[in-house]
Nucleic acid binder design. Structure first.
Lengths: 342, 342
DNA sequence: GGCGGCTGTGAGAGCGCTCCCAAAAGCATT
DNA sequence: AATGCTTTTGGGAGCGCTCTCACAGCCGCC
């Protein structure tokens, strides 16, 4: 097997110790913070490190510490083009930043099909990473269950399906509370016939937002709820549907901003004024969408990057043994952002 | 320090060997393919592996093999929202798939600012990964140089700036040849005043496409080239600019599809017929863009996912010592896709 | 039937590091 | 100056694996 690294082989801790005139143990202490080493010695070691360009061998270290300084981020792409989704981009960015702050690496596991499940589970149990972060996308997907069964701690982004694995720790925003606030706001505006353009019923976020809507409008006409799928097109379609079913509708709470944007287009096309005739509220506060709507979209804001960061913090606490799965989940607050559409 | 893995500690190769009644060496041989082990013994070992749920300890293995089975993918986000960019998504997907095929993990390094350079370089030299993949985004960025200086093999996506690091291996499509073909096609259509909506001069892909344009139109009026930046908006702006400068323009080669889409919009707004009055050709053949234009965009196709895969293959060959940096770069072919706009 | 040349197997070293434990050194007391 | 402490330091084991090397079988061959 040919040498893969150029130049001479990397210096070991042994070499550093020899050069500094100390034992390997002392050199190790200095490299790992230097607690309990007298200053002049520590300085000598640090100098040796510098001169030799010493970089600790990670494999050797984690062989004994059983820590890897790495966390897996599992991204499934069953249907969504995950990365193009600005939601995911933000969340992954938050994760990445927080991991960097914890001096931890991000190992990306991109799951393609169902055959991949076995590979993922082997990887998680294979001692490559200390923990994992995953996203609960669809209620039908078996992947979350597979992941949760692994022997390393896992934190989910988004509330997983309730049921057997209720003990799975997750971070999610207060979808239900946010929806409630949005609908309550519409009520406070004096709106009487408030429709809901719902997201796909395979995703808990959509279900929770629908639940929030129902919390406020306990006995709303079922015809006021139209089933969409979080896309702009479905927003347009459901809005049209709603107008047909209930021409007297005077407000709409869309399950996300994209659907709200689709709805606004339809309303504009039909000459229905927003917010005068129909008030519209979205969910997510996605810059790219919100900035482009006309009128500017009133929506429920959630801190997506912050949720990513929280996922990491929670995982780190679990790794430190300071948090246990059952009690650890975090629900982040949402807030209504009032603009022009409602 | 509390236990981080649940349950009893993982079985070692020693345990497998004991259970199978063989030596550790033999067990190791079986786990690694089983060459040179008699069948009955091998079967016994495999059974022990199954019964114990043995998974090799990766750290221990790479401590001795000096292989990590992991490759870093370095993503800088100087200006671009990398992940939202469908180009990157495709390329990363290709990379991910090919890495999986090579049983290699993807470690994502997300570079934020310039202070991060040191961290990246330490990581690359820290014995975490066998090689790295990076993208040469902007000629001004120092990052590629930092990366190229590391002691592990690196393959770039996109031709890096020529100059000092000409020996850096990369994978890129034939930007220049593709541009040439596009412009030649416009010429063959009988077009006489062919403009170019150029991409940012800080990116080699844009420069190469411009060069291809110039290859064909050696002494074109400089006024026919307008400087954009790969965005849809810049496509619209440069198209307007071009129409002002040279109202007689009868064809346009845009540096990418997004710019072409912007250009089409402007042409439509002004009632200029495409392709009758002005023919338009793009570059990239991005589904999302191409599918949405009216008329359908004629463009230069490049296999982005394939480029991602090639990056991995090239890196793997370098890791095997079968390819050396200087001679290894790959230029993938492009092809004109004729639709309606030209 | 004994002997070279196989192939298959096991013993053991050692990858580079951390961490336990014992020894040494320092310090302040008596 | 001797004692009893605390802090620093070094020796050495061992994390789980691979890989070299020596040895044990086994074949056919003279």
């Amino acid at each position: 097997m040919p040498e893969q690294t150029t130049g001479s082989s990397r210096p070991t801790l042994e070499a550093v110790a020899a050069r500094a005139g100390v034992s390997r143990a002392t050199a190790s202490r200095v490299v790992n913070g230097g607690a309990g080493v007298r200053l002049p010695l520590a300085e000598k070691v640090r100098e040796a490190v510098r001169e030799l360009g010493y970089v600790p061998n990670h494999a050797a270290r984690s062989l004994v510490t059983r820590r890897h300084g790495a966390v897996a981020v599992i991204i499934a792409e069953p249907e969504f083009r995950i990365f193009s989704d600005p939601f995911f981009e933000k969340q992954v960015r938050g994760i990445s930043r927080e991991l960097t702050a914890h001096d931890t690496q991000l190992v990306l596991l991109w799951v393609e099909g169902h055959g991949d499940h076995e590979r993922i589970s082997r990887y998680l149990d294979g001692g490559h990473v200390d923990g994992a972060l995953a996203f609960s996308l669809h209620t039908a997907d078996r992947l979350p269950a597979v992941i949760a069964r692994s022997r390393i701690p896992v934190v989910f982004g988004g509330r997983p399906v309730s049921g057997a694995e209720s003990a799975v720790p997750f971070v999610d925003c207060d979808n239900r509370g946010g929806a409630r606030e949005a609908v309550q706001y519409l009520v406070s505006l004096g709106r009487r016939h408030i429709g809901h353009l719902a997201g796909p019923c395979t995703q808990t976020s959509a279900l929770d937002r629908l639940a929030g809507y129902r919390d406020v409008l306990v006995d709303a006409d079922p015809a006021l709820v139209c089933q969409g799928d979080f896309t702009r097109e479905s927003g347009a379609r459901t809005m049209a549907e709603l107008l047909e079913r209930r021409p007297d509708v005077d407000a709409v709470f869309a399950a996300n901003d994209l659907m709200a944007a689709g709805a606004l287009r339809v309303l504009r096309e039909r000459g229905i004024r927003v917010p005068e005739d129909v008030a519209v509220v979205g969910f997510d506060d996605m810059d790219a969408v919100v900035r482009a709507t006309e009128p500017a979209l009133t929506t429920v804001r959630q801190d997506i990057e912050g949720m990513g960061r929280l996922m990491v913090r929670l995982l780190m606490r679990m790794l430190d043994g300071a948090a246990d799965a059952a009690s650890a989940s975090v629900i982040t607050p949402t807030g209504l952002v009032r603009r022009e559409s409602a």
